[in-house]
């Protein structure tokens, strides 16, 4: 396995996460663990989105639907008396795959703005489906009776264990995504982003590859939904609102489109900004927006782009 600069950023992020429990202990602030777990879940979702957005240039404005699908998989299975997290993950992924195959096959017949709009439309359909599903709490959502169990143990009731599970999943999924983008499949996906005409002229039909990527992306994002449901012990349609889809895109842009570690960094940064800015003012979204404009104008490529530029600077000084 070849280590690259981007991997270094990911390693630093993972190490930073691993230090959170210690920090929470030191500062006697258990809330840190809660925030960090949410960061991990959103990092997984952003990474999943980046697979299609960054590597496939397919701007999905409907990825919140997969967060919701994962979360509702937990709610529904618990109502049916199934509490195991492994089964929750499997069910969430399976449902996400079904939803992604259906909506992706239709959406991928369009391009550009139309793709954005149609993915948005599908996710809003999912949103309103759960809004009107009164047995699951409808618009208000519903609390979970408990967290998912791990091999029959209620280990995850402890915030610390949930945190480690989320970190483990993030690292595992990072390695999976990293392998995918470097594989034969990943090359075809990136090639279709670079120049679809050229891809057809060497004998590839991008559709099948793009649909597969879209399905993988949705499945990964649904895993984040399972984690978020467990973290909050509460599931409502708000999780799949189109605002959420926008936030996921913002995370990817903040971190640097088309870099997996960038998506993770973006999720961390976005939640960090939200927490700190919200502490100063209730109009934090205004400042967040200004910050985002600044990033796009002055640091295109986001966090990952900044790191690359700093490295270039250091390199040229030597």
């Amino acid at each position: 396995m070849r280590l690259m600069g981007r991997d270094l950023v990911a390693l630093l992020l993972f190490a930073g996460f691993a230090a959170v429990p210690l920090l929470a202990n030191l500062l006697q602030d258990p809330f840190l663990l809660v925030i960090a777990t949410r960061m991990l879940a959103f990092a997984i979702a952003a990474m999943g989105l980046d697979l299609v957005l960054g590597y496939g240039a397919l701007v999905s404005f409907g990825h919140a639907a997969y967060l919701g699908i994962g979360a509702y998989a937990v709610t529904i299975l618990m109502r049916l008396g199934v509490y195991d997290i492994g089964l929750h993950l499997l069910a969430g992924i399976a449902a996400a795959v079904v939803f992604a195959v259906g909506t992706g096959a239709v959406s991928l017949r369009t391009r550009g703005v139309y793709f954005i709009m149609i993915t948005l439309a599908f996710s809003q359909m999912a949103y309103f489906f759960f809004v009107s599903f009164s047995a699951l709490g409808g618009d208000d959502g519903a609390s979970l009776p408990q967290r998912s169990t791990l091999f029959g143990h209620d280990l995850l009731e402890n915030d610390l264990w949930l945190f480690w599970l989320a970190l483990g999943l993030l690292i595992g999924l990072f390695l999976v995504c990293r392998a995918i983008v470097g594989s034969r499949f990943g090359r075809v996906l990136c090639g279709a982003r670079e120049n679809p005409q050229r891809m057809q002229a060497i004998g590839f039909v991008p559709f099948g590859y793009q649909l597969t990527a879209y399905v993988i992306s949705g499945a990964i994002t649904s895993i984040a939904g399972v984690l978020l449901a467990n973290q909050a012990e509460f599931v409502s349609p708000a999780l799949m609102n189109w605002h959420r889809s926008g936030e996921l895109i913002v995370m990817v842009v903040l971190g640097g489109i088309g870099t997996l570690s960038g998506a993770i960094a973006g999720a961390v940064l976005a939640l960090l900004l939200e927490e700190t800015l919200a502490g100063f003012t209730q109009y934090w979204k205004l400042w967040f927006g200004l910050f985002l404009v600044g990033i796009v104008l002055f640091a295109p490529g986001g966090v990952q782009g900044l790191v690359a530029r700093i490295k270039l600077q250091i390199g040229s000084r030597r």
Partner: peptide, 28 residues
């Protein structure tokens, strides 16, 4: 493919004629 290296441009065309491209794990 402007963002690809020269070698990758040609390797991808070779790939189109040699074996399946639904391979997800081995580095190309």
């Amino acid at each position: 493919l402007p963002g690809f290296s020269v070698l990758e441009n040609v390797a991808l065309a070779v790939q189109a004629r040699s074996g399946s491209s639904f391979r997800f794990f081995r580095a190309a």
